[in-house]
Computed example of a mutant assay.
Amino acid sequence: MIPGSTAASFLLVVVLGAISPGPDFVVVTRSSLTGGRRAGIAAGAGIALGVFIWVAAIALGVAAVLTASAIAFTVVKLAGAAYLVFLGIKAWLAVRRGGYRDLGAGEHKPPLAAGAAFRQGLFTNLLNPKVAVYYLALLPQFLPADGAALQTLELTAIATAGTVLWFGTLALVVGALRRFFGDGRVRRGLDAVLGSVLVALGLKVAAETA
């Protein structure tokens, strides 16, 4: 079993890492604004599943192979960059189409569904090989030298729980403020800004060398 102090320290590091602004943060924020708290929480759950898969892959040695192979790393990185740009362009297209109305006046288009938000969160995380690099560097610092599979599984559960904790909180906060952003012009401006941020992050990811 992982000692309680070690588990608490690992959870704190995971949450602090999740808080750092990045693609996951933007996806949950936009999901919460366009689909409400339910969509935001679903996006956060998708990201948490992505973290679980990455950490499990590290335990199986798959992630180490990915980060050791420049070609594999680049393929996943470019796929992730393309997906972020795709999400950003979707936001831009929504701005161009218009159709924004005040929330109190009824929606002109259906809100983002929880299933779609979940998939966006999952793919955004899984197509980011930086997550593998992060946990490859982090896990050994919290595992004993003779760390067993059970202890790795415990850390995997903690990493997943910490991710759910932060992004669930973010979704609730942004979802609660959704009515504050209920003015159609405000939401159109937010879509333009968040779409631009997603495209910029995608281009940044594509340009990074490691």
Rank of each mutant, 00 (worst) to 15 (best):
T74V: 05
L201M: 15
P111H: 13
S31E: 05
L66K: 04
A210K: 06
G17T: 09
A45W: 07
A157H: 05
W54E: 05
G44V: 07
E107H: 12
L49W: 08
A192L: 14
P111Y: 12
V131M: 01
R179L: 11
S9N: 14
R37Y: 07
P144E: 10
L139S: 03
A18L: 01
V131H: 01
A57R: 01
V13T: 15
F167G: 07
S196N: 02
F10E: 10
V28C: 00
L49M: 06
A113N: 08
I19M: 10
D102W: 10
A8Y: 07
I58V: 10
G35D: 00
S32I: 04
P3L: 10
A145Y: 09
T169R: 05
P129T: 00
A68T: 13
L126F: 09
I71P: 00
A113C: 06
T209M: 04
A105G: 06
R119F: 13
R30H: 12
A48D: 08
L172A: 13
V13M: 14
I41H: 06
V173E: 00
F167P: 11
A148L: 12
G184C: 08
R37T: 15
A116R: 15
A137V: 08
G61Q: 06
P3H: 06
D183N: 14
A79F: 05
V95P: 11
L194E: 05
V28I: 07
R179S: 11
G35L: 06
R119G: 14
L66M: 12
L103M: 09
L172V: 12
A117G: 06
T34V: 04
T160L: 03
D146F: 09
G121D: 09
L198W: 10
A8K: 06
A68G: 15
L150W: 12
V26W: 01
A159Q: 08
T67R: 04
Q151C: 04
S5V: 15
A57L: 09
G99K: 09
T34A: 11
W92I: 06
G99T: 11
V85K: 02
A45H: 03
G121R: 05
I89L: 09
K90L: 10
A48N: 03
W54C: 00
Y100I: 04
R179A: 10
Q151S: 13
F10V: 11
L60I: 08
A82M: 11
A105T: 11
S5F: 15
V197F: 05
A176M: 13
G106L: 14
L60Q: 11
L150G: 07
G36D: 12
I89Q: 01
L203H: 02
L122E: 09
Q151P: 04
L170F: 03
L33P: 10
F86H: 14
K109P: 00
G189V: 06
A159F: 09
L136C: 04
I41A: 09
G189I: 05
P23H: 01
L122C: 05
L103C: 05
A105K: 13
L177N: 03
G4Y: 11
G4R: 12
A116T: 13
G184R: 03
K204G: 02
